[in-house]
C-alpha cells in the first residue's frame, strides 16, 4: 500500500479533483460523510481537471493539463497508469462508456472531441470543427450517444452525436453562458448542466427536449455530477462541493475541504453498474 494512494471502502463515494490531488467523500444515502473525506491520490505537480469512473473495473480516470496526460488508477489503490500522453494540449473533459469500454475526452486547445479504448489505444478524433472551448463531456451508453458543452463566449452550446461521430447536432444554444459542467441521469434520461455565466443549474428531458431550472444564483460552478435525485457540483468561488436536490430544487449540502483552493472535476463511484444492453457484444 502507498500512503499517497488510499484504498476506498465499498459504497458510493463522491470523487473530486483539487489542485494536485483527487479526494473522495463517502455517501451515506444522500448525505456526505464529510468527516471521512480522504485523499485518493496525490499528484502534486499536476493540475487535474476532469475525473470519470469505470464501475466495471472500479477505476478512476482523469485528465491533467500539466502533463498534459490522461491517466487512471484503481479505486482500491495501486499505481498511476498513464494512458494518453501524446498529442494532448488542454484535455478538460473526460467520460467513460462502461458498456462499450470506451474513453471520450475534449481538448480545448486542439479544439477536438476524441475517443479511444479504455487503455488509450485505437485513438480517433471524432470532431475538430466548430469547437472553441469544449469542456464537459458525458456518455449515454444505453443510446450509444455522447453529449458535450462548449463555453465559447461568442456562441456557447451543448451538442450531441452518436459515439461513432455520426449525427452530430446542437441540443441547446439559447440562454447559455459558460456551461462548465454536464452530467446525465441515465435512469430518467435527463441531461443537466451547470452554467457559470447564467449562474444556473438546469436539466433537460432528452426525449421531450424540455428544459427546467433546478437552482438559480449559483456562484461559479465548474463540474457537475448526478446521483439519484441529487446533483453535486464543484464551485470555484465557494471552493466547495455543493449538493442540490433536483425535486425540491434546493441546496441540501455544502462540503468545504480542509485545504482552501479551487475544486475541479467531480464524479461518483456507484457500487453497481447500471444495467445496459450492449448491442456491440453480438
Amino acid at each position: 500500500p502507498r500512503p499517497d494512494v488510499h484504498p476506498v471502502s465499498l459504497g458510493t463515494h463522491l470523487v473530486f479533483a483539487q489542485s494536485g490531488k483527487i479526494e473522495h467523500v463517502p455517501l451515506d444515502g444522500y448525505k456526505l460523510k464529510t468527516e471521512e473525506a480522504r485523499p485518493l491520490l496525490h499528484i502534486p505537480d499536476r493540475v487535474v481537471i476532469a475525473v470519470a469512473y469505470d464501475c466495471v473495473e472500479r477505476m478512476v480516470y482523469w485528465t491533467d493539463i500539466t502533463g498534459p496526460a490522461i491517466s487512471k488508477a484503481s479505486l482500491s489503490g495501486g499505481d498511476i497508469i498513464p494512458l494518453v500522453t501524446k498529442e494532448l494540449r488542454s484535455p478538460e473533459g473526460i467520460a467513460v462508456d462502461h458498456v462499450a469500454r470506451l474513453l471520450f475526452w475534449t481538448d480545448s486547445m486542439r479544439d477536438t472531441i476524441e475517443v479511444s479504448k479504455l487503455d488509450g489505444s485505437q485513438r480517433l478524433v471524432l470532431f475538430d470543427t466548430d469547437l472553441v472551448n469544449p469542456r464537459p463531456i458525458v456518455t449515454n451508453p444505453a443510446y450509444g450517444r455522447i453529449y458535450w458543452a462548449d463555453w465559447d463566449r461568442d456562441g456557447p452550446k451543448i451538442e450531441m452525436s452518436h459515439m461513432d461521430g455520426t449525427e452530430r447536432s446542437v441540443l441547446v444554444d439559447k440562454d447559455l453562458g459558460l456551461p462548465n459542467g454536464l452530467t446525465l441521469d441515465a435512469d430518467n434520461q435527463q441531461l443537466c448542466w451547470a452554467d457559470a455565466g447564467t449562474q444556473r443549474v438546469e436539466c433537460m428531458d432528452l426525449h421531450r427536449r424540455l428544459r427546467r431550472n433546478i437552482v438559480e444564483g449559483v456562484q461559479y460552478p465548474f463540474a457537475l455530477v448526478s446521483f439519484g435525485k441529487n446533483l453535486y457540483y464543484t464551485d470555484w468561488k465557494r471552493e466547495a462541493v455543493v449538493g442540490v436536490d433536483r425535486h425540491t430544487q434546493t441546496e441540501t449540502e455544502e462540503f468545504l475541504p480542509q485545504k482552501r483552493s479551487r475544486l475541479y472535476g467531480i464524479t461518483t463511484t456507484p457500487t453497481q453498474c447500471p444495467q445496459v444492453f450492449n448491442y456491440c457484444s453480438n
Binding site: G20, H42, P44, S261
Partner: peptide, 21 residues
C-alpha cells in the same frame, strides 16, 4: 506522507495558493 516505493516525502496540505511535493 512518505511514498514507500521511492521513500519520497510529499506535502499533503500546502498553504493557500501553493501546491506541489
Amino acid at each position: 506522507a512518505i511514498v514507500p516505493s521511492t521513500r519520497e516525502v510529499v506535502c499533503t496540505n500546502c498553504p493557500t495558493g501553493t501546491t506541489g511535493k
